[in-house]
């Protein structure tokens, strides 16, 4: 019997790890959008998760209320988020005054506006979202493997590798970095900086919508379900540094895993303080250079 118990607890542990990495995969998908947006426009979009919520809701309304074919409904949901993200850049981000903290303020406003708007338009009831494979499961060697988890993990790995290839290995990546480093030089190289930025914002909408749909399938759909998720994503970005690539992306998986393990060991209630302790520990331990945002070059 003890042997069985041990296997059982090992199985449980593996399952918790798998679940954590799956969550981390979704964080990575979301964080990729945050990173590319930050690198090209030096802004962070607090309303980022809400774009995904709206995409998920549009998909939901199309398939469940209007009974459109599910793939089409989801594709249009993603399209809605893409358009909304592009519009955010065009109408808001381009006009932000050059004053400390105002980019955050404007996107906080967008967060409030979109969350409340979603509440009003779609109602505040919880809804069950499409399963997206989360109902399919198999037990392998004592580990309960959920197809939805595998999908999340897969998406995360695709984002991790795909993002690396795009950001670091392609001409597009060069343009991105050039625009981020010095818009004037980028323009002289023939890069249309503003259009590139809008395109990157649109792409971030796509990532947000895909991740939000998968997350909705694991949780429920309402106007606010992405807020805690996006806070974790920002934390991963903050821990790794948004002007880098690998550290934050790996931190996304790390935060997912950490949360899952902390929940397993201390109970699911413990995730808020656990995360808090992690952040404080990093803030206290991390070397000065790691935390410094780029300084004014020539004093």
């Amino acid at each position: 019997m003890p042997a069985v118990l041990a296997v059982g607890s090992l199985g449980n542990t593996l399952q918790v790890i798998l679940g954590g990495l799956a969550t981390g995969g979704l964080y990575a998908v979301l964080l990729l959008g945050v990173i590319v947006v930050f690198q090209v426009s030096k802004n962070v979009n607090f309303a980022y998760g809400e774009l995904g919520v709206i995409g998920a809701f549009v998909g939901y309304v199309l398939y469940s209320t209007l009974h459109w074919p599910t793939p089409l409904a989801l594709a249009l949901g993603v399209a809605a988020a893409v358009v909304l993200a592009a519009v955010t850049d065009l109408t808001l981000i381009r006009r932000i005054p050059d004053r400390q903290g105002f980019d955050l303020v404007v996107t906080l406003g967008a967060l409030l506006l979109l969350t409340a708007g979603t509440d009003v338009v779609f109602g505040s009831a919880d809804r069950q979202y499409l399963n997206l494979f989360s109902d399919k499961a198999r037990i392998v060697g004592g580990v309960y493997i959920n197809a939805g988890d595998l999908l999340s993990l897969g998406l995360g790995l695709v984002a991790l590798v795909g993002g690396h290839l795009i950001v670091n290995e392609t001409g597009l990546g060069v343009s991105l970095r050039a625009s981020a480093e010095d818009p004037a030089i980028a323009r002289s190289m023939g890069i249309d900086v503003l259009s590139l930025r809008t395109a990157v914002w649109a792409a971030s909408g796509l990532l947000a919508a895909v991740a939000s749909m998968v997350i909705a399938s694991r949780l429920v759909l309402d106007a606010r379900y992405m807020t805690p998720v996006i806070i974790n994503v920002f934390i991963a970005g903050m821990l790794g540094g948004l002007d880098r690539y690998w550290p934050p992306m790996l931190a996304a998986f790390g935060v997912g895993l950490y949360n899952s393990l902390a929940g397993y060991i201390f109970g699911s209630d413990a995730s808020t303080p656990a995360l808090f302790i992690l952040v404080l520990a990093v803030l206290i331990i991390a070397p000065k250079r790691f935390l410094e945002e780029r300084h004014e070059a020539r004093a």
Binding site: L92, R95, I96, P97, F102, V105, V106, L108, G109, A110, L111, L112, L113, L114, T115, A116, G117, D119, V120
Partner: peptide
């Protein structure tokens, strides 16, 4: 409806 207005006002004033 207040949060919607609140968000809108925040954006408009900041911009």
């Amino acid at each position: 409806l207040f949060p919607i207005l609140g968000g809108g006002v925040l954006i408009l004033v900041a911009l």
